[in-house]
């Protein structure tokens, strides 16, 4: 057995290089923002940010898994809204627990539909989930009747608005999601299958892995995280209207990509997705604090997505030489 392992060391270095780079971008952002806006580093601002980030974080955990498996889900924003709307509507009739449980089931159900159509119909998941994006959004309008639903029980809102050690509970829940996601990806047979299917479907299938089944399971997972995030959002805001979380899907996919997950599947680290979400949230926060016209926000986010993906592609090309 050989003790020295130079190739492995180089690999580790390369991996941590990507991580260091993401952290460096984050650090630069923090420094620049704290200089430009003195309020930025205040605990009020930071804990607010944590609360706002929670929904994106939870969905991003699921999105990382589905993207490693080589698929996308752009219906998540609509599923967040639909689950929140159903939960809110049912809560007033049947109480908190049944309402939450029923609304949580919407996510995996839509995910199952997305997965089956994608794999059995051999249609790109991007297109299939574009369809469910519209369908779920429409259902959210049906459920709310176009009205804002509020008047939720206090014990439910306590989850979304409470704090533990002065940290918003939704943020802590989101971190828990990442812990579970990391464990599943790194330490379970299912996780290894997700990577294998995303890296090379043929190799995986010939190795006895039911690739379609794995992909369907991944789409059910991301659906679940979306429905779960919908409930967290509902508890945090205390009210829901049908066009909540529009465009969330692209912000989340951007965060996953900024976190280094391959757009083509097979590669990625779920913990780095957290950094991606934080970077996007910070930029939005910065634009808010510096009173730049709100209409420019999406422009900035879009530009950053392109820059991140481009940087990633250029680095890979250099690395291959």
């Amino acid at each position: 057995m050989m003790m020295s392992d130079p190739t492995r060391r180089r690999e580790l270095l390369l991996q941590s290089y990507g991580l260091l780079q993401a952290l460096a971008v984050l650090a630069v952002l923090v420094v620049v923002m704290s200089i430009l806006s003195p309020r930025f580093l205040s605990w009020i601002n930071i804990s607010n940010l944590m609360g706002q980030m929670a929904v994106n974080l939870i969905v991003a955990a699921g999105m990382t898994i589905v993207m490693i498996s080589g698929e996308f889900d752009i219906s998540v924003g609509s599923v967040v809204a639909l689950a929140a709307a159903v939960s809110a509507a049912l809560m007033q009739q049947m109480g908190v627990v049944p309402a939450v449980l029923l609304s949580l089931m919407i996510g995996p159900a839509i995910g199952f539909f997305n997965g089956v159509i994608t794999t059995k119909g051999r249609i790109p998941s991007f297109i299939v989930t574009l369809g469910t994006l519209m369908m779920a959004r429409s259902l959210a309008f049906v459920v709310t009747g176009g009205q804002v639903i509020s008047n939720l029980p206090d014990e439910f809102k306590a989850i979304g608005q409470g704090r533990l050690f002065n940290v918003p509970i939704p943020f802590l829940i989101a971190l828990l999601c990442f812990a579970v996601g990391w464990f599943v990806l790194a330490r379970t047979a299912f996780g290894k299958r997700v990577y294998a299917v995303g890296a090379n479907r043929m190799v995986a299938t010939l190795s006895g892995i039911h690739a379609d089944r794995v992909k369907i399971q991944c789409m059910m997972i991301v659906g679940f995280t979306a429905a779960f995030a919908g409930n967290i959002l509902l508890a945090r805001i205390g009210a829901i209207q049908a066009d909540t979380a529009r465009g969330l899907e692209f912000e989340v996919i951007a965060a996953v990509v900024i976190g280094g997950t391959s757009l083509y599947g097979g590669q990625g680290n779920i913990l780095r997705t957290i950094i991606g979400v934080i970077i996007i949230a910070l930029i939005r926060n910065f634009l808010n604090l510096s009173r730049i016209d709100i209409f420019w926000q999406d422009f900035a986010t879009g530009a950053i997505i392109i820059a991140a993906v481009l940087l990633d592609a250029l680095q890979k090309r250099v690395g291959q030489r």
Binding site: K192, A196, A199, N200, M202, V203, A204, I209, G266, Q267
Partner: peptide, 16 residues
Amino acid sequence: REGLLPESPIWENVTL
């Protein structure tokens, strides 16, 4: 293209 996962380490390939 059909046998190995080139980016994966040996131990992952042989246990797949």
